[in-house]
Amino acid sequence: MKILRRVFITFIITALLISGGLFSGYLIRPARAISLGDILLLGGVVLAVSSFGGQINSFINNVLGENEAKAAGATKVVPIFSVGRGTYIGAAQVVGVPANVKRTKGVAAVNISIGNIAGSALVPISTQKPGGGTSLNTVSGVGVSAVIDFHI
């Protein structure tokens, strides 16, 4: 009787070990770093740019470096604010002399559509959103070198 009980307990232990190992893979998700996609879902473009702007900037510079086309100026990734829609629509890498790039906090996009043709004026600004009234708080001496579309 005692032997039978021991065999039974051993069987239970083995079964639990195997099932625990098998099912934990389904119950517990693998650990992973917070991705750009997660940040976009949680906090939108501005948070994504503030969290991943540096990495995106380096990524773009590396792409250009591989093509021997790296910009000589300072670069930075900032959010694009659509003046017409009143919302953030993506991000842009701006390029220019370091002092002016440092001042740049966003890019204001003025979009015009005529049929299938779309035009966008991209204006680097010293605020994340354009200022009130007629002022855009533009930063002179800075242009756009890349546009980042988050809607893949």
């Binding site: 991705s35 750009l36 996609g37 976009l40 991943f52 990495q55 995106i56 990524f59 773009i60 792409v63 250009l64 991000a91 890498q93 070198s145 890349a146 546009v147 980042i148 579309d149 988050f150 893949i152």
Partner: peptide, 9 residues
């Protein structure tokens, strides 16, 4: 970039 952002340089 990271499968969620298309970059146009």
């Amino acid at each position: 970039f990271e499968r969620v952002a298309r970059v146009f340089v």
